[in-house]
């Protein structure tokens, strides 16, 4: 199995880990968004709460969720390792002038964007996920069954001005991260073909705009009571 170790210790193998975990997290984002959009229903948060209950109790989802955490950590960890390697690759003396004309900003700043997103994830988990699991969250009854009222917690935070601003800011960071990351993942996996490139580029860019925009729309709508 030396070859497997060789594969994942090479820069190309580590990039594959970045791409595969990244694509998984992109899928996760889509599912997460689908859930969040239910907050926009004017049903007192019922649909959202039912969804949240399902997500936090279904055994299969629990496995995927553990995987998700692992992939986030792997994505961050591998990128940290690569970033350190890449810094060292420049050598002791860096450039005095860098024009930056030959690449886009988000491509050059994936590390910073990723760090912002990681910090956001921690805050986000503390305020919602941890509360859901271990916090003293209020409950509601639907059809005789008890549900944790996550929508109320969300509604609370989404009426705090600075929190909404932070949330939106982080969605912008995710947007930029995706702007590069989505297409980049395909390139890393070797999926670069003139026939399919236009589709990958279109979907990648649309995803990078639409998904974070919808995520950000929810707190904005709730804050401004639209």
């Amino acid at each position: 199995m030396k070859w497997l170790i060789d594969l994942f210790s090479s820069t190309l193998g580590r990039k594959v880990l970045m791409a595969l975990t990244g694509l998984f997290l992109i899928l996760f984002l889509a599912v997460h968004l689908a859930g969040n959009l239910q907050l926009l229903k004017h049903d007192g948060g019922r649909a959202f709460n039912v969804y949240a209950e399902f997500m936090s109790t279904n055994p299969l989802i629990q496995v995927i969720s553990k995987g998700n955490f692992f992939f986030i950590l792997l994505h961050a960890g591998v990128s940290l390792g690569l970033t350190i390697r890449n810094r060292n690759a420049r050598g002791g003396v860096g450039y005095a002038v860098i024009s930056g004309k030959s690449s886009i900003w988000s491509s050059r700043n994936m590390g910073i964007l990723g760090t912002v997103i990681l910090v956001f994830i921690v805050i986000h988990l503390k305020d919602f996920w941890a509360q859901m699991h271990w916090g003293g969250i209020e409950t509601v009854m639907y059809d005789g069954k008890e549900y944790r009222d996550l929508s109320k917690l969300v509604a609370y935070w989404f009426h705090v001005g600075w929190y909404v601003a932070l949330y939106c800011f982080c969605m912008i960071a995710i947007g930029f991260h995706l702007w590069h990351g989505f297409i980049s993942a395909f390139q890393t996996l070797g999926l670069n073909h003139p026939k399919y490139n236009p589709l990958i580029h279109f979907v990648g860019k649309a995803f990078a705009i639409v998904v974070p925009a919808l995520f950000a729309w929810i707190p904005l709508a709730m804050y401004f009571n639209i």
């Binding site: 820069t11 890449n86 690759a89 420049r90 030959s102 690449s103 886009i104 491509s107």
Partner: peptide, 22 residues
């Protein structure tokens, strides 16, 4: 070739495409 490239201490590709542009 990849093994040799890595052992020379070059960085990894992050698909910024600056190489292609330059």
């Amino acid at each position: 070739m990849v093994e040799q490239m890595d052992s020379e201490g070059f960085g990894s590709c992050t698909n910024t495409r600056a190489c292609e542009a330059e």
